[in-house]
Design a protein around this nucleic acid. Sequence first.
DNA 1: CAAGTAGTTTCCATCTAGACAAGTACTTCT
DNA 2: AGAAGTACTTGTCTAGATGGAAACTACTTG
Lengths: 106, 106
Amino acid sequence: MPGTEHPRHSLDELIQAPVRFSIMATLSGVGEAEFSFVRDTVQVSDSNLSKQVTILENAGYVRVRKGYVGKRPRTWLSLTPVGRETFSSQLATLQEIAQQAAAAAD
Amino acid sequence: MPGTEHPRHSLDELIQAPVRFSIMATLSGVGEAEFSFVRDTVQVSDSNLSKQVTILENAGYVRVRKGYVGKRPRTWLSLTPVGRETFSSQLATLQEIAQQAAAAAD
DNA sequence: CAAGTAGTTTCCATCTAGACAAGTACTTCT
DNA sequence: AGAAGTACTTGTCTAGATGGAAACTACTTG
């Protein structure tokens, strides 16, 4: 099908990056996760996670909730509905790219 | 499910990059493809494809065969067995991540 | 001989991840 | 009370990745 745009072009650049993809993937598997849980799961430094989360938050993909456990501050992260939708269509696009290859084989 | 490793850890970063992922996807659907076919399918410049293919070749994922059509030089690309295996497990991992995400959405 | 083909390589400009250091605002320990 | 620790946040800096444009290679064709 010439003239058709390759599905790669509809990938979301923001969550293409491995670290952000991983943060989204981690959050997609749970409802809400603590900052430290995500940091340990993705294996990234505090500062890096903090920065990437800010980017994701500004994009409207991640919700940051601050509260306390006892008297200590704590941060919880979760996907917003938009973030969840975006991540799932990113995965769908990836599958589409994989399948488009099979179609081209004819 | 705490304590369980998130599937994202088994993603290969080399083929996480959209252009390389797309090249692998294109090649996975065919036995062997011409350089120009891949270039047009993935919609990437000659120079970019040439560079990415070198990276994939050095990684052992793509085989580059040079020959002639008539008297003109031509390059064919194909996945090596390792490349094919790597790409297919990348897809399986993506699928797994998608399923976890869907499960958490309930 | 000029132009074209099929890539390849170089130059460059941009973008980004991630390390490291320091800062903030408390809380807890001694 | 003062020192140390907790839970991030922010600033600075650098190495590496990306990709377009243009020059280059080695022929072939008009």
